[in-house]
Design a protein around this nucleic acid. Sequence first.
DNA 1: TCGTTTTAGTAAATCGTTTTAGTAGTTATA
DNA 2: TATAACTACTAAAACGATTTACTAAAACGA
Lengths: 354, 354
Amino acid sequence: MPRKSPAKDRQSAVSSAKTDSVSLKQLAAHLNLSTTTLSLVLNDAPSAVSIPQETKDRIFSAARELNYRPNYLARSLRVQRTHTLGVIVPELSDGYSAMVLNGVEAVLSTQGYFYLTASHLHRDDLLKQIPQMLTERQVEGVIAVDTPMRFEPNLPTVNVSGHEDVLGVTNVILNHQHAAELGIGHLFNLGHRRIAVIKGQEFSSDTDVRFETICEAARKRDIPIDPKLTVQLQGDSPSPELGYSAMKTLLATGEKFTAVFAFNDVSAIGAIRAVEEMGLRVPGEVSVLGFDDIYAAAFHNPALTTIRQPLFEMGSLAARTLLERLSNGHEALIPEVLSVEPTLIVRGSTARVS
Amino acid sequence: MPRKSPAKDRQSAVSSAKTDSVSLKQLAAHLNLSTTTLSLVLNDAPSAVSIPQETKDRIFSAARELNYRPNYLARSLRVQRTHTLGVIVPELSDGYSAMVLNGVEAVLSTQGYFYLTASHLHRDDLLKQIPQMLTERQVEGVIAVDTPMRFEPNLPTVNVSGHEDVLGVTNVILNHQHAAELGIGHLFNLGHRRIAVIKGQEFSSDTDVRFETICEAARKRDIPIDPKLTVQLQGDSPSPELGYSAMKTLLATGEKFTAVFAFNDVSAIGAIRAVEEMGLRVPGEVSVLGFDDIYAAAFHNPALTTIRQPLFEMGSLAARTLLERLSNGHEALIPEVLSVEPTLIVRGSTARVS
DNA sequence: TCGTTTTAGTAAATCGTTTTAGTAGTTATA
DNA sequence: TATAACTACTAAAACGATTTACTAAAACGA
């Protein structure tokens, strides 16, 4: 499929070799100084006070002139810090991970940290290999997103929406109980009594807590979730297709309900399609409640009522927490759980039961 | 907002220090062998033929037992290869970049490569700094996505949807002319003659080619795009909001049109909302054509007719191209342009003009 | 038996930094 | 006038691997 433009091929741009990097040693030779002196001056070490400003200036200007760029590998090897984290996600294009990563990066980039990303695709072999590879590459810590802990955390780890209680791992989670209260409360207040639930995939970290808290919130209101009204997402595509299929199976049972609480906005969008294909109106005959508040939620038809998860904030919180732990060395207290609050966003996909 | 669970704080998991890494030197000492021998054996170097199998086994089992993990920094420093690329994107959560990255990663992960991601957020300072920082970190090459080349590529570079003709940079692009033909052709065949166009943001690499090829395709059919029927996206959020605002301004002019060709699916979704708020039906009174074919496109109401861009393939093509160039050393021919083909996906948001 | 190969390794240099522990020469202090 | 303190630097070790250039002993060949 890729089409080369053959007439336009060119020889390697050897000209750019001009900018090839100078080492500290070369720079030192060029200045008739030792690498020690250069290093002290360039890093503004305390012991550089005795170096006269004139020499410093010579060094700085030569460094600029020869375009000296310190080799981070060498430096990291020596100082035993890489300023690099590892980030493990299920996959990149699922929206959820991307939003969290955005928050992670916003923090890291201001602190001079970079990160290596790896997707586990829910594959067990990758879940075990990736942490090892990241360790070999000397990352200082790991941020995992919606990732089961199939490995022993030999590195400081923060797991976003992790629910396993692993020693040394901080879980950043949503206040699920509150989320369930908001969601079920909203539907209840609109008069819904028979509420269907689309559970997340088996491998998704939030699936169980989410379902349990929803059941609990419903029970409290004396409208327990009927097992016959629950379906589970199958497969791991980030497409609304999964929600569509799940809803189709539920509708095929013929059970009656007036509202659906979907696992996320993406599946809610799929569910709406399935409901409408049955000739039912959303929200007229069926209310649909989403989760996450992705960008598309507000602009879907009908606009999605949803429980907002502050994904960006969860990412940045994870990053801040990990960096703090790294800078505090090993005396740091490791919080087991950091929780953030959901928000109910009421839009057009839910309505009073008629 | 983050709430600590104070009673649950724990002291640092010192126990995990057990798994702390052994160096090759320590392993060698433990075996009463030199690091040379270990290195030769562990890397299966040709000169290791003279080492008896028994010794090799001893080495392997000790390595496993003591959980030896080679330090990638040290190795990279010595062999002068990091097996790491840099990836530059506008921002992570915009869907487009995430899809491309997905393709990039699919290739890199099979080749033992990792990558460092950096977002430039369309900021000029970052566009200059990021390549330098990546260079310092000794990445072997750079994959840029929708990124203007504000820097001299001193590293092998592949730019996905790059349109600048820079020496040493391979641009992976969509066949825009074909895309425009598909889009305008489709609308034309449905009887549309006055077609509005939502241009991309000024900073978006594809904006100009896309607009020009669309105009060209329209002119060829004697239905030139009326400048009064073009609007441009403003701002850089990945939300449909931008398309919504753009469409609002266009509608406010009172100009008549029967179809809109949007810059991407996200803005098309926003545009649909604006159109419907005016009391016009999509596709009854206005057809809307998107671009990209994001996951949500098929499930929007109405389902989006769109020009599919093979973003995953563009990412993997970029990665393959770069890796090939790296392995061929400097004798490699550098293709200037690699182009991929779009596909027209007809769904419900376009219809015959009535 | 003597020289050559092969076997089974090792010492030391190297990658590019940082950092420790200096050293001359000068200036201040007792 | 010693000596302590400061100034302006540097040599060498270290980080943890790989790689080049060896060596000592055993086996082989003529």
